[in-house]
Simulated scan of single mutants.
Amino acid sequence: MLDRPGTGVATYAKALHDALHRLGRPIERIADPSCGRPMERAPRADRWLRWADAAIERPRALNARRSDAGRQLWGRDLFRLAQVHFDLHGTLLDVRTEGDPGVVHWTYPLPIRLEGWTNIYTVHDAIPLLHPELSQIDATRHKALLDAIALRAEHLITVSDAARDDIVTALGCEPDRVSACPPGLEAAMADAALPPELDAGRFLLAVGSVEPRKNLARMVEAWRRSGTALPLVIAGPDGWRADEIRPVLESVPGLIRMPYVERPVLLAMIASARALLFPTLAEGFGLPIIEAMQAGTPVLTSRAGATEEVAGGAALLVDPNSVDDISTAIGRLEDDALLDRLRAAGAVRARHFTLDAFADRLDALHRRLGAA
């Protein structure tokens, strides 16, 4: 995840790394040198040998090496073999390494466990289980995976109280096995120029992949009904079921679609937008809310759930299922006084989600688990 920026999970992984660094903790990375290399490039016999190896239920040894960034633990095809091992056995792949044990943070639910260490797994949300119509993840397999992780993990963490409640409900696990540890970030505003078709302060912005969960069709219809003269920019790549949504976006005059934007330019767009529109149907957290607040940009987002929790009273809230409610709220974004109040409230709320605040929450969690 640390080498694949651009997604919310990757942003979380980097924030976790940086927060632990601020605590002065020595950091070791668990890496798979084959990650990102298509399996098909390997000789067929080599692939079969590795799958046969995954069928044997035994601990694997992690190798260790030093680099400029510190010690790195690695195993060839580690992550892929873990998934195959889980499919075959329904259990986590045990791995071991030399040296003193510590805390291992798995930044995504992976079927791996490091023997002798305090294994903490981040489960970002329970959307595939509670709202399968909004996720491409297989709900049956994902439930089995989370059950297996919950059985052997020292602890589970997630990114909001709302996500914690959903995870406890979906898994039926003891509430004290799951902690909310909201992330922090510092979205440094890069000195990047806006795309030439945009004027600072004169556009509305939505960010995220084009998929059903982001509620883009309702948002676009609400923007159209609002009668605002401000163009709407949607910045994000095609996601799951984008083919069903893209024609809707392409049929609306005045809408600007940017499927790919470099990170510095995206941050400049967030900072320059009149407001961020984020009326999503389901989130575990909602990083764009905090990115916008840190940039001084007013936010419109969904009422209830994690987005209302993260907004903390500093955003304009809407019913994401009501085009009329979203449309009315977009019309209110013409009010300069309202936007000034939202900017001020957002700046205060954003202080709760800095890297230092995240580091403090992680430190408290480690101490509570006796792993500091």
Rank of each mutant, 00 (worst) to 15 (best):
H155D: 00
H155C: 00
L156A: 06
T158I: 02
T158K: 02
V159H: 08
V159M: 10
S160P: 06
S160R: 02
S160N: 04
S160C: 05
D161P: 13
A162G: 03
A163D: 04
A163K: 09
A163Y: 06
R164T: 02
R164H: 01
D165Q: 14
D166T: 08
D166W: 07
V168N: 11
T169D: 09
T169N: 08
A170Y: 15
A170C: 12
A170N: 10
L171H: 01
L171A: 05
L171G: 07
G172P: 09
G172W: 10
G172Q: 11
G172M: 10
G172D: 14
C173T: 15
C173I: 14
P175E: 05
P175I: 03
P175G: 08
D176V: 05
D176R: 04
R177L: 04
R177N: 00
R177T: 06
V178D: 04
V178P: 03
V178K: 02
S179A: 11
A180W: 00
A180T: 03
C181I: 15
P183Y: 04
P183D: 05
P183I: 12
E186F: 02
A187S: 12
A187R: 15
A187G: 11
A188Y: 01
A188N: 10
A190H: 12
A192F: 04
A192D: 10
A193P: 08
A193I: 02
A193L: 03
L194H: 00
P195Y: 03
P195S: 06
P195C: 10
P195A: 11
P196K: 09
P196V: 12
P196Y: 12
P196H: 15
E197S: 05
L198N: 10
L198M: 14
L198Y: 11
D199L: 15
D199E: 15
A200Y: 09
A200Q: 11
G201P: 09
G201N: 12
G201F: 13
R202K: 05
R202T: 00
R202N: 01
R202A: 02
F203G: 11
L204Q: 09
L204K: 05
L204P: 00
L204T: 05
L205T: 05
L205H: 07
L205N: 04
L205K: 02
L205A: 04
A206Y: 07
V207L: 08
V207H: 14
V207P: 13
G208F: 02
G208H: 06
V210I: 15
E211C: 00
E211P: 03
E211I: 03
E211V: 00
R213P: 09
R213C: 05
R213W: 06
N215K: 11
N215I: 03
L216T: 12
L216C: 15
M219P: 04
M219Y: 11
V220A: 15
V220W: 08
V220K: 08
A222M: 12
A222C: 11
A222G: 12
A222V: 13
R225H: 12
S226A: 09
G227D: 04
G227P: 00
G227A: 01
G227Y: 01
T228D: 04
T228R: 08
T228Y: 05
A229T: 14
A229R: 07
L230T: 14
L230K: 13
L230C: 11
P231F: 08
P231G: 06
L232R: 03
V233D: 11
V233M: 10
V233H: 04
